[in-house]
Design a binder for these strands. Structure first.
Length: 432
RNA sequence: GUGAAUGUAGCUCAGUCGGUUAGAGCGCCGGUCUGUGGCACCGGAGGCCGGGGGUUCGAGUCCCCUCAUUCACCCCA
């Protein structure tokens, strides 16, 4: 029989790697809080129709990447390929916009049926925010600053921040016509993909990497020349904000993004450390989406960041720090000592603010100290027959090798032991 | 969906022209050291050589199929 393995494009997060995930998630919750975002959790699957309408019928996501299935009653459901549509659905369902602007963040899985490669998986994880109800460019600036703060906090540099504006419903038709005027006469020289894009979604030709298309892109009309007054002013204001905040970016007139709902601001952050899938996060403004999904006209802006990619970049560019020694390992020599230490261990786990561990096997002293070392404990508390008889524990600092004796805690509680542990664990670590 | 590379111990990898009992390093367990970790030395456990079929006296090695992984294309996080 074949071994059962994780499905294609999925991954197990196992120790010690899981620690890095936990640290990242903690930082995300902290940072989102500082920016005054509240967490939202939506279902892992939604009605297929939501994504078709929300993400756009002509997008790759909807055309070929969705995990869609029928449930037992024949309803078409789809595993979440991105968060925004589901978040907006939930916001409307609970009428959350009735109370004014709304700032939400999410963290969790997305699913896309794609061929896996470096930085791309069938189940991936994203952190993102949706800032609903603000048309002002300050909201756009906030959505760019937030993820960059996160990257900075993890010591990740060397990033490219790209920015563009892709206009609004007012100016898009004119720009679309300009694009068509430019590309139609040369359609025969474009790649097959781009020829198809020409009628359905001509803006997508702009970010083609096909060698047949590239020569024609440089001279193509850019949206920046066709923005309406309002869009141009919004873009200028945003650029002013980013300068004032101290965020460096490059305007990329060919940045368009693959989801239909974007308006005005679009941005991406890239890292060279990622290989071909260099986007670590992307986002933009989507002023029409809420209305399109049946809600009131509501300006909105947000971003989504790939956690796998974040961790991958961090590993290469950031400072992945080894955890400091922490906690205590109880070392019991023999069954009697082990029995005696069970309540001590239980007490430590109630009152001591650090990992408290004990080997339940019959390993000898050396082996248990090795275990303590590997577990990253700062202290070991040794107890064998001699110590039982004397009613003491030997506390050993695994860093400095200093030892001292403390009374074996009895029914009176572990206060003295805690004090001793605190004193020893705060001793300076010799620099090696 | 297309293309290429790679699948041998928990991990990273050797394995000659097809040849008899498949190796190393790291890790793990034990010993040297009856109760003091990291170092050193010694020993041990651990393998359907991804799976199936074929060629051959004989296959980890050659051929076919299949599965998986990786990288790239498309596109995205």
């Amino acid at each position: 029989m074949d071994k059962i393995t994780a499905p294609r494009g999925t991954q197990d997060v196992i120790p010690p790697e899981s620690r890095r995930w936990h640290e990242l998630e903690s930082a995300i919750h902290d940072l989102a809080g500082r920016f005054a975002y509240s967490e939202i959790r939506t279902p892992t699957f939604e009605a297929t129709e939501l994504y078709v309408r929300g993400v756009g019928e002509t997008t790759d996501i909807v055309e070929k990447e969705m995990y869609t299935f029928l449930d037992r009653k024949g309803r078409s459901l789809t595993l979440r390929p991105e968060w925004t549509a589901g978040v907006v659905r939930a916001v409307l369902e609970h009428n959350l916009l009735a109370q004014g602007p709304l700032k939400l963040y999410y963290i969790g899985s997305i699913f896309r049926y794609e061929r896996p490669q470096k930085g791309r998986y069938r189940q991936a994880h994203q952190f993102g925010v949706e800032c609903l109800g603000y048309a002002d460019a300050a909201a756009d600036a906030e959505c760019i600053q937030l993820p960059i703060e996160l990257l900075t906090r993890f010591g990740i540099g060397g990033l490219r921040v790209e920015l563009n504006s892709i206009g609004c419903a007012a100016c898009r038709p004119a720009y679309r016509d300009a694009l068509l005027d430019y590309f139609r006469p040369i359609a025969g020289q474009l790649s097959g993909d781009s020829q198809r894009r020409l009628e359905r979604n001509p803006m997508r030709i702009l970010d083609s990497k096909d060698l047949k298309d590239k020569p024609h892109l440089a001279a193509a009309p850019t949206y920046l020349e066709h923005l309406c007054d309002d869009c141009a002013e919004h873009f200028a204001t945003l650029r002013g904000h980013l300068d004032a905040i101290g965020i460096r970016y490059a305007v990329n007139p060919r940045l368009v993004r693959g989801l239909d709902y974007y308006t005005r601001t679009v941005f991406e952050v890239h890292s060279d450390a990622l290989g071909a899938q260099s986007t670590i996060l992307g986002g933009g403004r989507y002023d029409g989406l809420v209305e399109q999904l049946g809600g009131p006209p509501t300006p909105a802006v947000g971003f989504a960041m790939g956690l796998e990619r974040f961790l991958m970049v961090q590993e290469q560019l950031g400072t992945v720090t080894a955890p400091a020694r922490r906690g205590i390992q109880l070392v019991a020599l023999g069954q009697a000592a082990r029995d005696r230490l069970v309540p001590v261990l239980a007490g430590l786990r109630r009152a001591y603010d650090g990992p408290a561990e004990m080997d339940y096997g019959d390993r000898k002293l050396g082996a248990q100290l090795k275990l303590a070392d590997r577990n990253g404990a700062r202290l070991a508390a040794i107890c064998g027959d001699a110590e039982l008889e004397r009613g003491i524990l030997i506390l050993r600092d695994l860093e400095t090798k200093q030892q001292r004796e403390v009374p074996l805690p009895g029914s009176t509680g572990i206060g003295d032991l805690l004090t001793a542990i605190g004193e020893m664990a705060s001793a300076p670590v010799p620099v090696s």
